[in-house]
Design a protein around this nucleic acid. Structure first.
Length: 756
DNA sequence: AATCTAGGGATTTTT
DNA sequence: TCCCTAGATT
């Protein structure tokens, strides 16, 4: 056996144990900030260095592509280029690759489509219509959730009937579930859940295939094990069953995905499920100050703790946590922006040292507006991702059709987009035929002569079919993807209709399509054998969380969920109000308060040095002003580590609306930020119907003046050359350095931010 | 078939 | 407030 590598001495004692324990099942209980990623990467490097396995015999599963990429890079630093041969990625991406090889064994082709949540909702909606249910009464969303839950629990449609039929909703779900599974198979499509469920089917039906992959993956590692669901448990259980070299890393205190079927029992029961499993805790926190850790601990100990571990740190005590008491969300955003500027100026932090964390995505909007107005650069992570935008999904639907014509869902999406005279009536006639003949919609279109259809629509169908056929031929003849896409944009009339519409919205759609073309070119240049099929599969698993760039000089804004696994010197946890964090429920039911508390714990433990909690007394919801009670979590946190802005200790466990703070001018001793919450910086009267409008109470505050350096989220950095118009019609001409071109942009529409 | 309008419902969190 | 859809209008 080779000598131990010297890098092992970078690790503490517990970490070394975790790395050295190579064979047999291992559970690493990794507290927040305890160097979990480090242990995983060192462990993989160690396995290779000790010649336990070849890189391509190691499978490492993560929850985000970003986590996988980061690990890969760090392993590369330890062992070099060999790291590229590791099997590393998200559950979904790894298994979609395996399925591409083995699709034919379970009745799919390797060109299968991947449906995101919206696609699968569309398919379900279609099925509801076909079966005469009113999608208004029976919401596709609801059915989709139930079906998704069932899949993650590995409940087959037949069993759904047996297990759940107690109500009409269960009845309908059982029926639609069965039809949905059939429909997806006909469409040669899989949804996100299928990417986990189908491999289990595959392995269950084909012992030889299972054994092939068991032999392939001699060592398996799973990150964030507390967030695995039953399907993920099962599929990895099958794979690890031969060699039993399964190492899982997790923290039950950070389990925050139960809504997605994550089952905390997977980690709690690990030692029962895997005989002889060894448990190693990682308890030294390298990330946070003592104050922050104490706050986190005071929160989490209110939950029933399950796995033994005591987190401690050698770090300094650090500053106390500041609680911001705000008038409303604009006030909150302003104050956060002020503190960030202040800390940057006085303590030498950079913008990228800060994160604003919130419970729900829609809270980001006010921050975007405020930060832009005040010239604070930011990057927004999450929300509506690029690939979920309508125009992008439309174009991708066209492209999908070229390799998977039987995909009805994608075909329905674009058959009349842009409108080409195949309206609802005609489409329904065509669909009726498709069902009657048990053929895919595309096959019906190909033989539209043989059915009775409204004449103008029939002609349109013929034109549509010949267009798609031509593009298919181009593709088969090896024409470049980017050229096929350009031709598609032209021939389909998609671009033309956007040009004609000539609205700001259409404008931004064109920009996005341009960006998609860039993505396609990039893919084509950087892949050895770029196929449309692999492009589509790759991007359908990309999320916006993956594009977070820690070096970009900007404040990061994201949900607490998206922040899992990240760390920042300064963190603002905002919107700490009842019914928001912890969330409110729709039907006064089933808010999992312990999970909300874990989520708050995750938020706190993202912070290294400076931490703020913030809440508002009123907040706008659906355009209505609502009074808010501050979050119970603020009453739960250890009082000796939190202070108000004035430096006073916070009053806990009483109704904060009774406090009379109206006359208190809150002047902070530690910083020069001076603030009177009675007079928020924004002017309420300016709230108007146009939500994207930017107001400048004082024209001097408007940073978008000639000469200003700005950044556009697509075109990158640039400089304002000239400016015209007033108010919401203000336009600026910007010269973009990277593209060496100037563009005229409406300030109201273009998401510009000031840099420099 | 396409466009316009009024009215109702929606906001957790994500691969 | 915003988005979607059903129904009416062109």
């Amino acid at each position: 056996m080779p000598q131990e590598p010297s890098f092992i001495h970078d690790l503490n004692e517990q970490q070394q144990r975790a790395v050295r324990h190579t064979d047999g099942p291992l559970l690493i209980v990794a507290g927040a900030g305890s160097g979990k990623t480090r242990v995983l990467t060192y462990r993989i490097a160690y396995l290779i260095q000790q010649q336990k396995a070849d890189p391509n015999e190691i499978l490492a599963l993560t929850f985000t592509n970003k986590a996988a990429k980061e690990m890969q890079e760090r392993i590369q630093q330890l062992i070099g280029d060999e790291a590229r041969r590791l099997w590393m990625g998200t559950f979904h991406s790894v298994f979609s690759k395996i399925l591409r090889f083995e699709a034919d064994k379970i009745g799919f082709t390797s060109n299968y489509s991947i449906y995101d949540t919206e696609d699968s909702k569309n398919a379900i909606k279609q099925l509801l219509k076909e079966n005469n249910y009113d999608p208004k009464e029976i919401r596709p969303r609801t059915i989709q959730r139930l079906i998704s839950d069932a899949k993650n629990e590995l409940i087959h449609p037949d069993h759904y009937q047996e297990k759940f039929v107690h109500s009409t909703l269960d009845d309908i779900t059982a029926k639609i579930y069965r039809l949905y599974v059939e429909r997806l198979k006909h469409n040669n499509a899989m949804d996100f859940d299928d990417l986990l469920v189908k491999p289990i089917e595959l392995f269950g039906e084909h012992d030889d295939v299972l054994e092939k992959y068991q032999d392939r993956f001699k060592y398996i590692l799973i990150d964030e094990y507390q967030d695995t669901n039953h399907a993920q448990y099962k599929v990895t259980n099958l794979l690890a069953n031969k060699y039993k070299n399964l190492c899982v890393v997790g923290d039950d205190a950070q389990s925050i995905y139960s809504f997605r079927g994550a089952d905390i029992r997977n980690i709690l029961d690990f030692k029962n499920d895997y005989e002889g499993a060894v448990e190693i805790p990682l308890e030294q926190n390298y990330r946070s100050t003592k104050a922050i850790l104490k706050a986190a601990d005071s929160i989490i100990k209110r939950n029933d703790s399950q796995l033994d571990k005591t987190l401690w740190t050698d770090n300094d005590m650090g500053d106390t946590i500041t609680v911001l008491d705000n008038y409303d969300e604009r006030d909150e955003a302003n104050r956060v922006a002020n503190y960030i500027k202040e800390l940057k100026a006085r303590k030498g932090y950079g913008y990228n040292d800060f994160a604003v964390l919130y419970r729900t995505n829609y809270q980001s909007r006010v921050y975007e507006e405020t930060f832009r107005r005040k010239g604070v650069p930011y990057q927004l992570v999450g929300g509506l991702s690029f690939y979920q935008r309508k125009e992008i999904k439309d174009i991708l639907a066209y492209l999908t059709l070229l390799i998977n014509p039987d995909d009805d869902t994608n075909l329905i999406r674009i058959i009349n987009e842009p409108s080409r005279g195949i309206g609802n009536k005609s489409l329904n006639d065509l669909l009726a035929q498709s069902r009657a003949q048990n053929k895919s919609l595309w096959r019906i279109l190909e033989n539209v002569d043989q059915i009775d259809l409204y004449k103008p629509a029939e002609n349109s169908v013929k034109k549509f079919v010949s267009m798609i056929d031509e593009l298919k031929r181009d593709l088969d003849n090896g024409k470049r993807l980017i050229d096929v896409t350009k031709k598609l944009l032209d021939k389909s009339g998609y671009m033309k209709s956007l040009v004609e519409e000539n609205s700001p919205k259409a404008m931004s759609r064109r920009e996005n399509i341009l960006e998609l073309q860039n993505a396609i070119s990039y893919f084509e240049k950087n892949n050895n054998s770029p196929s449309l099929s692999s492009f589509l599969q790759e991007i359908s698993l990309i999320t916006d969380t993956d594009k977070y760039d820690e070096d970009k000089p900007a404040v990061t804004m994201m949900t607490v969920h998206a922040a899992k696994g990240l760390e920042f010197p300064g963190v603002f946890v905002v919107g700490l109000e009842e019914e928001l964090f912890p969330v409110g429920s729709r039907n006064n039911e089933d808010v999992n308060i312990e999970e909300e508390r874990r989520l708050f714990y995750v938020a706190i433990t993202r912070a290294e040095e400076v931490l703020f909690f913030s809440h508002c007394r009123s907040r706008y919801k659906y355009g209505e002003e609502q009074r808010k009670k501050r979050s119970r979590f603020l009453d739960e946190v250890s009082p000796d580590v939190v202070r108000t802005e004035t430096g006073a200790s916070i009053k806990q466990s009483n109704n904060n609306f009774q406090e009379n703070k109206k006359d208190t001018k809150t002047t902070n001793n530690n910083t020069t930020v001076e603030y009177d919450w009675k007079q928020p910086l924004y002017q309420k009267k300016n709230r108007s119907s146009n939500n994207t409008q930017i107001h400048y109470d004082n024209p001097d505050e408007d940073p978008f003046q000639v000469g200003a350096k700005v950044e556009h989220n697509i075109f990158g950095p640039g400089k304002i050359i000239s400016r015209s118009g007033k108010g919401e019609r203000t336009k600026v001409v910007v010269y973009f350095n990277e593209r060496k071109q100037r563009k005229t942009l409406m300030l109201r529409v273009a998401k510009l931010s000031v840099i420099g």
